[in-house]
């Protein structure tokens, strides 16, 4: 298949007709990430449709569509500079402010999470504001409460808690000095 016009290119990159250059770039990197990895969880290697050849063809189409769109949009949107793609992993480690943002985006209130996890709302708030002094004194409790909070939001517990606890422990070390 030859990707010829803007509509086709947008369809190939799975973006809407009014998607900006930034959104197009993000979609391009996401699709590349998806189709480059033959061990990706969405893949079904047993099926002919997922052959290396088929994936290669799709990657070519994505590449062509992106190049052409860049060319088309450079004339109509000269100010656009493709931004680096945000990946989910790149946003880790997640700090308190990020947790709060995610919680609010999910439409979850602190008292709801408190009710679900049985962690006091004051602690949840202290987590989000990274007020380490207001957290429980024992690190084991801090870790347990934080894990419950992160799990409740359906986020990867291990990675987030590890990063958060590292900051907490640095703070503890500073307190001891």
């Amino acid at each position: 298949m030859r990707v010829s016009d803007e509509g086709h290119c947008r369809q190939c990159l799975e973006v809407s007709a009014d998607a900006s250059m930034d959104e197009i770039t993000q979609a391009y990197h996401r699709l590349k990430r998806i189709y480059q990895d033959d061990l990706a969880p969405f893949s079904a290697p047993s099926m002919d449709e997922f052959s290396e050849e088929a994936r290669g063809e799709v990657l070519n189409q994505i590449e062509t569509a992106y190049r052409e769109l860049c060319g088309i949009l450079a004339t109509t949107q000269p100010q656009a500079h493709p931004a680096p793609p945000p990946t989910l992993n790149a946003s880790l480690p997640v700090d308190g402010a990020a947790l709060r943002k995610i919680r609010e985006a999910e439409g979850l209130t602190l008292d709801f999470i408190a009710a679900q996890t049985h962690v006091r709302q004051e602690y949840l708030q202290a987590f989000e504001e990274e007020r380490f002094a207001d957290l429980p004194h024992a690190a084991v409790n801090v870790r347990g409460f934080l894990s419950a909070y992160v799990a409740e939001m359906g986020l990867p517990v291990d990675a987030i808690v590890r990063g958060y606890m590292a900051r907490y422990q640095q703070w503890q070390a500073r307190q001891r000095k």
């Binding site: 699709l31 998806i34 449709e49 088929a54 189409q61």
Partner: peptide
Amino acid sequence: VREYRQTEVGVAVTSAVNKFF
């Protein structure tokens, strides 16, 4: 969906249905 990163599977599967099937 047990972990947030799994949400990308939904996007990927939809894309594959369009592109491969």
